[in-house]
Design a protein around this nucleic acid. Structure first.
Lengths: 221, 221
DNA sequence: CCTTGTGAAGCTGTTCACAGCC
DNA sequence: GGCTGTGAACAGCTTCACAAGG
């Protein structure tokens, strides 16, 4: 037995790699639950999530002991405990800055709200977009960024602006209280230590695939 | 000195973690070049890319020895060699399947073509979308998938369909010759060993940020 | 003298294999 | 008997610190 989520509420470190997989497990469990499955073992769940069963068990062991030896896991029970661990029991208000093609697509994305991510404010610098509605949300002027972020106490924001504006927008978001940023702009943004940034680089993903394709074709040379 | 890209063309293994950062370095170099910088050292370039200078140097050492001790790197020279290493000297034809909000945004994304990724074909299952033009490209019926993929010898494809169609589309793509898939659908897709998949999960990225936000707020409890 | 390129050390993450428990 | 939970072995990645070399 382990220390995990101690009775007094003090929790210990879950490895980053594990944290990144917990939402995947949760999604896999939801899929099982939707298909009427009430119990599963680590092999099934791992297959659904696309990982090795040993890794799944090790990951879950960082949260606590929510399975039954010789039997497996109760889908609903495990679902609840993972959801709890990753903060899925509460909703998070988010803002999206830059309502171009990508920002607009993100605004429409149904996967956010089903995961507890509530879009609370959209911003754009283009006066022809300000005042329009996208996916049912009013697009605010970026001039009102600080005011609206503060008023709604938003701490998670998505940057979908052109590269040359990302740093400046990040600085303003942080000054208004944002402490987590998802960055789609293809530049590294500099932030203070207390702010976390995750970057998603769409072109880079394709370049990584292309690298391996190239290696493959070199073999036939 | 090292074995690296041997004279006979046989290359050796570059670590995956390095491959994933090479496009970032290339982008950083392009930014420097655009601002008129001709020479840089590992500290500058690493700062631009958001990594530790030692890691940058170690990464580059897997490609060869393209710097000058006591001086630094020639921007254009290094740019060329990284571009060469990741296959950026040729263009890659890609297909996008699922032209909803996300697929449409990806079709418009300028960052692809500037990185050598040429959109060659768009597909959708919705008859009201088939035949329309998105970002200058005709949307084909998914019925013609195999035919068009084969005709254009496309090996890299992007799946932006709903989750429940992703596996079936992947199977069809692979049967038509695709060997690299970028998957935006929130499910793990099963593929043969010779096919590589990279998954981008937008909601998961926000959930990871939320996890750390939650940890933070627990401290004040 | 300055910065690269790189062994070696240290760290993190993954897999194995089996003890523990139902 | 069978599956979980986990120590121990392993593999890969990052950082350090310095020798090599312009």
């Amino acid at each position: 037995m382990n220390d995990h989520t101690s009775p007094d509420g003090s929790t210990n470190r879950v490895p980053d790699a594990t944290v990144a997989r917990l939402p995947v497990y949760l999604r896999a469990l939801t899929a099982l639950a939707d298909s009427g499955t009430q119990r599963c073992d680590s092999t099934q769940l791992a297959a659904e999530a696309g990982v090795n069963p040993a890794m799944l068990r090790k990951d879950l062991s960082h949260l606590g002991s929510y399975g039954t030896r010789g039997v497996g896991y109760d889908v609903g029970y495990l679902q609840y405990h993972i959801a709890r661990a990753i903060g899925q029991t509460q909703d998070w208000n988010i803002a999206i800055i830059g309502i171009g093609n990508l920002g607009s697509a993100l605004s429409h994305y149904a996967g956010f709200s089903s995961r507890g991510m509530k879009i609370k404010a959209l911003f754009d610098a283009d006066p022809t977009r300000v005042g329009t509605k996208v996916a049912g949300h009013l697009v605010h002027s970026v001039d009102d960024l600080e005011k609206i972020i503060r008023k709604n106490a938003i701490v998670i924001a998505v940057i979908a602006t052109p590269a040359d504006q990302a740093q400046q927008i990040a600085d303003r978001l942080i000054s208004a209280g944002v402490t987590s940023i998802l960055d789609f702009a293809p530049v590294h943004i500099r932030v203070p230590d207390h702010v976390q940034v995750r970057r998603v680089d769409l072109a880079t993903e394709l370049q990584i695939l292309a690298y391996h394709e190239q290696k493959r074709s070199e073999l036939s040379a």
